[in-house]
C-alpha cells in the first residue's frame, strides 16, 4: 500500500499544517490561545481514536495519561530545570510506559468491564497524586517565572509551546494514519470486529492491544506537559477531569470513530458548538444541556459520526476522507 499516494493521507496533515501556519503568521496572542485549546482537543481525540477507533476498546482513562505524563513533565521542568522539549518527551514516555504496564493487566478485560476499570484507574490516579508529596500533593506544582526567561520571556515561551503542540498534533495525525494503513492496524481492526476470531487467524491480540494502548497514551503525556507549562501550574483537579476523557470520547464519536479525519472534525465541531452556546444569550445557562441533546441526537441517529456518515452516503469521496 503506497499510503503517501492516498489523498486521504495528505488532507488531514495539510489541514493541521496550514492551521498552525496561519496562527503563526497572524501572530496574535488571543488567536493563539484559542487555537491552542482547539488543537489540544484535536490531538487528544485523535490519540484516543488510535485505541478506541481501531481496537474498539472504550477508555475513560485517556485523561490519566494527560494528567500523569503532564505532571511528570512539569515536575522535571519546574523542579529540575529540564528543557521544555525534553520534558514533554519525558512526560510522554512516562505515560507510554505506564500504559504498557497497565495495559498488560487491564486489557484482559473486555467491553464494559474494561471501560469500568479505566474509570477506576482515573479516580485512583487522581487520589494518588493528591497525596503524593513530590508532586505537591493537593496544591500541585508551580513553575518559577524565571523558567520562562530561558525561552526569551513569557511571550516567546508561549509561542514555543504552541509550536511544539502543533508539531505534536501533526505527529498524532501521522501516526494515526500510519497505524490504520499498516499490517498492524489491519490486525487491530480484526480485534475490533471479533477478538476471538482474530486470534484464531493468528493476531496476537494481547500484545497488539498493549502496543496500541502505549502508542495512544504517549501523546497525551506530551500534550499535558505543554498545557501545564502554558498555564504555569498543575494541580490534581485540573489534571484528572473525568469529563475531559468523556469529552474526548464524544469528539471521536461526533466525527466518526476509526477514521483519521473523524476525531479532528469532531473536536472542532464540539468546541465550536460549546463556544457558541457559552456566549449565546439564549443558551448560556443551558449550554451543557443543549450540548447533551445534540450528542444524544448524534448517537441515536448518526452513529457513524459526521465523517462516517458522509463516507457511507457518498462512497466516491471515501479516498479523500480517511
Amino acid at each position: 500500500m503506497r499510503t503517501w499516494k492516498l489523498p486521504g493521507f495528505w488532507i488531514p496533515l495539510a489541514l493541521v499544517f496550514a492551521w498552525g501556519l496561519i496562527i503563526l503568521i497572524m501572530g496574535q496572542d488571543t488567536a493563539r490561545e484559542t487555537a491552542f485549546t482547539l488543537m489540544m482537543f484535536v490531538a487528544m481525540a485523535s490519540s484516543l481514536n488510535i485505541l478506541l477507533g481501531y481496537t474498539g476498546y472504550v477508555s475513560f482513562g485517556h485523561i490519566v495519561f494527560f494528567g500523569l505524563g503532564g505532571y511528570f513533565g512539569f515536575f522535571l521542568l519546574s523542579q529540575h530545570d529540564w528543557n521544555l522539549f525534553l520534558a514533554a518527551i519525558a512526560g510522554g514516555a512516562l505515560s507510554a510506559v505506564l500504559a504498557g504496564l497497565l495495559g498488560m493487566a487491564v486489557l484482559r478485560l473486555r467491553g464494559a468491564y474494561f471501560a469500568l476499570a479505566t474509570i477506576g484507574i482515573n479516580e485512583a490516579a487522581r487520589a494518588f497524586v493528591s497525596n503524593f508529596e513530590p508532586f505537591g500533593g493537593a496544591t500541585g506544582l508551580f513553575v518559577n517565572f524565571a523558567a520562562y526567561e530561558r525561552y526569551g520571556g513569557a511571550g516567546k515561551a508561549l509561542w514555543l509551546t504552541f509550536i511544539l503542540l502543533w508539531v505534536a498534533t501533526l505527529a498524532v495525525v501521522l501516526v494515526s494514519f500510519l497505524v490504520k494503513h499498516s499490517r498492524f492496524g489491519l490486525g487491530l481492526m480484526a480485534i475490533r470486529e471479533d477478538e476471538d476470531a482474530a486470534m484464531v487467524m493468528g493476531v496476537k491480540a494481547p500484545r497488539a492491544k498493549t502496543i496500541t494502548f502505549t502508542i495512544s497514551a504517549f501523546f497525551p503525556g506530551v500534550i499535558g506537559t505543554l498545557y501545564f507549562f502554558k498555564n504555569g501550574n498543575v494541580e490534581p483537579g485540573d489534571a484528572f477531569q473525568l469529563h475531559m476523557s468523556i469529552e474526548s470520547l464524544v469528539m471521536v464519536m461526533l466525527g466518526g470513530q476509526g477514521l483519521v479525519l473523524g476525531p479532528m472534525v469532531g473536536a472542532v465541531t464540539y468546541q465550536g458548538l460549546r463556544g457558541y452556546l457559552l456566549t449565546s444569550p439564549i443558551f448560556k445557562d443551558l449550554h451543557l444541556a443543549v450540548a447533551g441533546v445534540f450528542l444524544l441526537l448524534i448517537i441515536l441517529f448518526v452513529p457513524a459520526g459526521a465523517v462516517g456518515w458522509v463516507r457511507g452516503r457518498f462512497p466516491r469521496v471515501r479516498r479523500f476522507l480517511e
Binding site: L186, G187, M189, A190, A198, M201, K204
Partner: peptide, 9 residues
C-alpha cells in the same frame, strides 16, 4: 480485507 487478515497473520 477480511481475507488479508488471514494472510498477514
Amino acid at each position: 480485507e477480511n481475507v488479508m487478515v488471514g494472510a498477514c497473520y
